[in-house]
């Protein structure tokens, strides 16, 4: 077969990219086995001590916080994105679809930092939300949104929504409308159709996209850095502190490894489950 040669065109660049990624990861991870020498940029010999160190509350709580923030972000992101994705796919009004696409997808093209600054303006003590709350007399003093987990999660949810909407819209668009029509025909009111047919049939997409957002929020940096302001730390912020402020490369490497394993691990763990769900709801 002569046309096999064409595959090399695709395979070789893939392999080179993959090799570069693996090598840089290996370079980072090898630090996690090195001894930290305070006051020196060089590392010492082989040790497993760094791995025991992350059991210390300072690190361990940040890891827990990161998992919690990522989980909450993924869940709220799902709850807010599903209706938008549903409307985007199912609306018959062209203008509404166009509007939703513009509103939900364009944020993708503004950088994380720009969007985070926007949220700082919204969430700050004299920001948009507090001004309204105070003007309406609901609160007498500004509510503290900045430097809180709540503020970080709000910004992270918004940051992840475009991706979530795209993933969910794909899943919803694969559901044949005839299933919804059939349920309505059999006597199901619109909300019942939604819960008993649409949601179960999009469950693989729901689980998969939630896990993707969970995994990708694990590596959030700029948003917690700016909105958390050092009071809310996620793993990446701690890596930054340890690696570039204290120059403790070994601990930074261990933390990176933990984040990497958690992200890849959660995707890998859920994949068989998603595959099973997909098989279950596969349409003819």
């Amino acid at each position: 077969m002569n046309d096999r040669r064409i595959w090399w065109f695709f395979i070789v660049p893939c392999m080179l990219v993959a090799l570069a990624v693996v090598m840089s990861l290996a370079a980072v991870f090898q630090y996690s086995f090195r001894e930290f020498i305070p006051g020196s940029l060089d590392t010492g010999g082989f040790t497993l001590e760094n791995f025991y160190n992350i059991g210390r509350p300072l690190y361990f709580l940040v890891i827990l916080d990161t998992l919690l923030i990522s989980l909450l972000t993924a869940i709220f992101c799902l709850l807010l994105s599903y209706p938008v994705a549903y409307a985007l796919v199912r609306t018959e009004a062209e203008w509404l679809r166009a509007l939703l696409v513009i509103l939900s997808i364009t944020p993708l093209f503004t950088g994380e930092i720009v969007r985070t600054y926007a949220w700082m303006l919204v969430l700050g003590s004299d920001g948009f939300v507090n001004s309204i709350l105070m003007a309406l007399g609901i609160v007498s003093a500004p509510v503290q949104f900045m430097y809180t987990k709540f503020g970080v999660i709000v910004a992270l949810v918004h940051f992840s929504m475009p991706v979530m909407i795209i993933l969910l819209a794909t899943a919803i668009s694969h559901v044949n409308r005839d299933y919804e029509k059939a349920a309505a025909n059999l006597g199901a009111a619109p909300l019942v159709v939604f819960w008993r047919v649409t949601v179960p049939l999009t469950m693989p997409g729901i689980v998969a996209s939630t896990v993707v957002i969970f995994a990708w929020t694990m590596s959030a940096f700029a948003t917690p850095q700016l909105i958390g302001g050092g009071k809310v730390l996620m793993i990446s912020n701690l890596v930054y502190l340890q690696g570039l402020s204290s120059f403790n490369f070994p601990v930074a490497a261990v933390l990176s490894a933990v984040a990497f394993i958690a992200a890849v691990g959660s995707l890998a763990l859920v994949q068989p489950f998603v595959t099973r769900l997909e098989r279950r709801v596969a349409q003819q």
């Binding site: 044949n176 005839d178 299933y179 029509k181 059939a182 349920a183 309505a184 025909n185 059999l186 006597g187 199901a188 009111a189 619109p190 159709v193 047919v197 179960p200 049939l201 469950m203 279950r280 709801v281 596969a282 349409q283 003819q284």
Partner: peptide, 20 residues
């Protein structure tokens, strides 16, 4: 009257049996 209050029974061309 919306479809769910009409009491008709329909067989679809592709059957539309709920796969789940």
């Amino acid at each position: 009257v919306p479809p769910h209050l009409r009491d008709t029974g329909m067989v679809f061309q592709n059957y539309a049996l709920f796969p789940h």
